[in-house]
Write a protein that binds this DNA or RNA. Structure first.
Lengths: 138, 138
DNA sequence: ATACAATTCATACTTTAGTATGAGTGATTT
DNA sequence: AAATCACTCATACTAAAGTATGAATTGTAT
């Protein structure tokens, strides 16, 4: 927030300087009007692009962010969420068990709980639902 | 392509008109220099935003577009691709069979072929691989 | 015409996935 | 101290998923 205010302040200052520069160089007569106009056009063109890029970047980031609040709301525990992420990468129960150093039956228990909490019938459906809820990335 | 040329042509024309207008109004003396500069600044600011938005939109679309070439390269048939898309939505073989009006064993055959062609061990892995290859959306 | 690829289906089988139930442990809360 | 929760694990079962094989049909290309 403070950053935004600082940037806008600097911007306004730069514009005022530009205004005065233009006026003086016009009065003194050693610069043509076309040159000044072209300069101003380029400066504002670039400013427009930069500002737009920042805004769109924020929007993009927001749409790809994980909704940690929703994870809590659904009642997914830390371990269950871990398992959910591994499911989404395409691992089998056995592979997940090896990766997390627990038994396959433990993973089965977690998966069952995940399916209930996400209201899914299958793990493939759980992946879809988790994506729609912005719980996992892609 | 022709569209781009047309737009750029119109843009250059508009700029020339702006230049001349500025000069004349300055010479005639009924418009202040600040007003002209402000006008030009606004116009180019807006142009910058518009052009930037279009470029980013295209980039975004490209990154989300389906690579039809890759589908052919992998040797996926039309029907197999249909089944792959349904798998990605989280449907079971039986549900896919009902949706496509064929038997479950037909879907099983398709799924087996899909897994071989995508080099996947499971359907969940197939979803991931298909996403990475930009064959399906998300 | 025939060779070929795509699609369909079946049967039999193996492997995963998922459910149900019960239970033990450690950490945290009341 | 007792209750609660998250995590762990096991067993036994049912339900899907996936493999292998063979075969019939249809449209298309040679």
């Amino acid at each position: 927030m403070q950053k935004t205010i600082f940037i806008f302040g600097a911007l306004v200052l730069a514009l005022l300087v530009l205004f005065q520069l233009s006026k003086y160089s016009l009065v003194s007569g050693n610069t043509s009007i076309e040159f000044i106009i072209a300069g101003i056009a380029i400066v504002f063109f670039v400013i427009g692009i930069i500002i737009n890029k920042k805004v769109l970047y924020k929007e993009k980031n927001n749409s790809e962010e994980i909704d940690h609040e929703k994870i809590k709301t659904l009642g997914l525990s830390k371990r269950e969420y871990e398992v959910l992420c591994e499911i989404a990468t395409g691992l089998s129960n056995k592979e997940i068990a090896e990766k997390l150093f627990v038994s396959e039956s433990t993973i089965k228990t977690h998966v069952s709980n995940i399916l209930v909490k996400l209201n899914a019938k299958r793990r493939t459906q759980a992946i879809q639902i988790a994506k729609e809820l912005r719980i996992i990335q892609f």
